[in-house]
């Protein structure tokens, strides 16, 4: 664990930003060249959405990993959170520009289609988090910053719910994401409280 943490300390954050940013242009390239199959619009939309969910899950895993496994990835948490926002924004952009196409349809979909309302809610909640991600904002907000950034919990739950609600039939994948997010949040419950709840 010590060696791992020492290794992590040597990885510069910019490499994490770069590494996490690259899948998006790669997916776009695949979409343009037939690598995403017969229906590249939906494929691109879904892949970007899944990257956002993976990064939200990764972000939520950092605290439990430190607390329960002694692995310290805290220095990457901001990069992971911001890149999750980047994927949600791209996912939204693909939906708007390539998928729905008709501007009149967009607002109707947001209001009328619960899974879109939920997804849009998650995106809107991420905006203040992205804006307050600078060192200056962290200093300025003080202890309120920690409170504000707990909104991430709601964002992750809404993101997974959005996926659960859009599939046809009983499908495993979105339910796995939801279960994973719920477990990562459950690990945050106060220890004593958790045992009382389980007892």
């Amino acid at each position: 664990m010590q060696a791992l943490n020492a290794y992590v300390r040597r990885v510069p954050t910019w490499m994490v930003y770069l590494g996490l940013a690259l899948p998006a242009p790669w997916l776009l390239y695949l979409g343009l060249t037939g690598g995403l199959g017969v229906e590249p619009i939906k494929a691109l939309e879904h892949e970007l959405g899944k990257w956002a969910l993976w990064l939200l899950i990764a972000g939520l895993a950092i605290t439990p990993l430190r607390k329960h496994a002694g692995i310290n990835l805290l220095k990457f948490r901001r990069a992971i959170g911001l890149m999750a926002f980047y994927y949600v924004a791209l996912h939204l952009l693909v939906w708007l520009v390539l998928d729905v196409q008709q501007p009149s349809q967009i607002w109707a979909d947001i209001v009328k289609r619960p899974y879109i309302t939920v997804g849009m809610g998650a995106f809107v909640l991420m905006i203040p988090l992205a804006i307050t991600s600078s060192n200056r904002a962290i200093r300025a907000l003080g202890s309120r910053w920690r409170q504000l950034h707990k909104v991430t919990y709601a964002v992750a739950l809404l993101g997974a719910l959005h996926f659960v609600m859009l599939v046809k039939g009983f499908q495993i994948e979105p339910i796995l994401y939801m279960a994973l997010i719920a477990s990562l949040l459950a690990l945050r419950l106060p220890r004593r409280g958790l045992y009382q709840r389980l007892a």
């Binding site: 979409g31 343009l32 037939g34 017969v38 619009i41 691109l44 979909d109 289609r113």
Partner: peptide, 13 residues
């Protein structure tokens, strides 16, 4: 979702 329109497959991105 709406059924008013459809995406014909094979037209790329």
């Amino acid at each position: 979702w709406s059924q008013a329109s459809e995406r014909p497959l094979g037209g790329g991105l």
